Amino acid sequence: MKLYLFLFSVFLQSCLYAQESTASKSDSLAELKKIIFAERIIYNKKRCSEDSIRAVKASEIQNKYFINIAAPYGDKFLPGEELRMILKKHNIIWGGEWMGSDMGGYSGECYYSVMTELTEKKFGKDFIDGLVKESVAMYVKKHPDKIFDNDEHCEWTYKGKYLSYTDDNDQLNKDFFHNFIYPEGYENYNPSFQKYRSSTAITIILDQKGKVLKHQFSHRIYNDHNLKYIPYFEKEINKFIKYTKFEPVKYSGYPVKSETIFFIYYK
């Protein structure tokens, strides 16, 4: 019996030691991460300061313009070559796109952003924005059949307001449901057995004036009882599209033919 107690005591002490050792290693690792993170911040600030000074000095000799795109898979600025030609007329160098790091590293963003800011300050931001729009217009003229994706360079609003892609809290849904009457027998969203609210995604192709050239539906009806009302939903959405004046999608501020999407969320 004493032997069993002794062995149990040894086993218990080993477990406690292992737990303390694991906890100690975990604490050490957490502390190491803090140190590395702090050193990275110091390094990034130092590099940023150096690059900012370099941009200021370089701007005294030449002006460059860059466009920032989202990391890690930013969308290429399509009229890059057109913009290069237009900027060159004003002795501005097109530096291309740049993206920051999504991993907390430093990618030279301070040089690009400061240089661009100094160029905009010298020539005026409205003037530079006008040159960018001019480059888009030139690109569109060269590619009249181009249908732009709704990427990060594009902006689409409804009555001057951004749309919601998660719920019905936007002006478009408010306008649609202003005259919409739910069919008799329609069952409302019930969170007790439905994880999501039902909705319809409408993909539309708009011309440069906002006219709908083509559209298609994608329904997400999470209550099987309401599936029979899909034809009615489509009829009402078609009516809404017919009598609604949409704004065109703008690529860097210039209206373009584009494919975009909006959602109708049902109760």
Score class of each variant (00 low, 15 high):
Ile128Lys: 00
Ala70Asn: 13
Tyr158Gly: 06
Lys88Asp: 00
Pro191Lys: 05
Leu131Pro: 04
Glu184Ala: 15
Asn91Pro: 00
Tyr73Glu: 10
Gly104Phe: 07
Asp168Asn: 15
Glu187Gln: 12
Leu172Tyr: 05
Pro183Trp: 13
Glu82Tyr: 10
Lys122Thr: 05
Gly100His: 02
Asp129Gly: 02
Met115Tyr: 00
Ile86His: 01
Ile86Ser: 00
Ile67Ala: 06
Asp151Pro: 07
Glu81Leu: 13
Lys141Pro: 00
Tyr189Leu: 05
Tyr186Asn: 06
Pro144Cys: 11
Lys121Ile: 02
Tyr196His: 03
Ala70Gln: 10
Glu152Ala: 11
Gly105Trp: 06
Phe127Ile: 00
Leu83Asp: 00
Met99His: 13
Lys64Leu: 00
Met115Ile: 13
Tyr65Met: 11
Tyr189Phe: 14
Thr166Trp: 01
Ile204Thr: 08
Asn190Gln: 03
Ile147Cys: 09
Thr203His: 09
Glu117His: 14
Asn91Trp: 00
Ile181Lys: 12
Asn63Asp: 03
Val136Gln: 01
Val114Leu: 11
Phe148Arg: 04
Ala70Trp: 04
Asn63Arg: 14
Pro144Phe: 10
Gly95Trp: 01
Tyr162Ile: 12
Lys88Leu: 09
Pro191Ser: 06
Met115Gly: 00
Tyr65Leu: 15
Trp94Glu: 01
Lys161Thr: 15
Asp168Tyr: 05
Tyr112Gln: 12
Cys110Met: 10
Ile92Arg: 03
Tyr182Pro: 03
Lys64Val: 09
Ile202Pro: 01
Glu134Leu: 13
Phe77Tyr: 08
Ile67Tyr: 01
Tyr162Asp: 11
Ile147Asn: 07
Asp151Ser: 11
Asn169Tyr: 08
His90Glu: 11
Val132Thr: 05
His153Thr: 05
Gln171Val: 15
Cys154Asn: 11
Gly74Ala: 02
Gly160Asp: 06
Tyr111Trp: 01
Ile93Phe: 10
Ser164Gln: 06
Phe127Asn: 02
Pro183Ala: 14
Tyr111Arg: 07
Asp151Met: 04
Met115Asn: 09
Asn188Ala: 11
Tyr158Trp: 07
Cys110Ala: 14
Phe148Asp: 04
Val140Trp: 01
Asn188Phe: 10
Met85Phe: 07
Glu120Asn: 10
Glu155Leu: 14
Asn179Asp: 13
Lys195Met: 03
Lys141Asp: 08
Leu83Asn: 02
Tyr186Arg: 04
Tyr112Ile: 08
Val136Arg: 01
Leu87Ile: 08
Ala137Asp: 09
Lys142Glu: 08
Ile181Val: 13
Thr116Ser: 15
Ile69Tyr: 05
Ile69Lys: 07
Asp145Thr: 13
Leu78Trp: 08
Lys141His: 09
Asn179Gln: 10
Glu184Asp: 13
Lys142Pro: 02
Ser107Glu: 12
Ile86Leu: 09
Gly96Pro: 03
Phe127Ala: 03
Trp98Pro: 04
Gln62Val: 13
Glu184Asn: 13
Arg197Thr: 12
Lys159Ile: 09
Asn173Lys: 08
Gly108Ser: 10
Ser164Ile: 03
Phe180Cys: 04
Arg197Gln: 08
Gly185Asn: 06
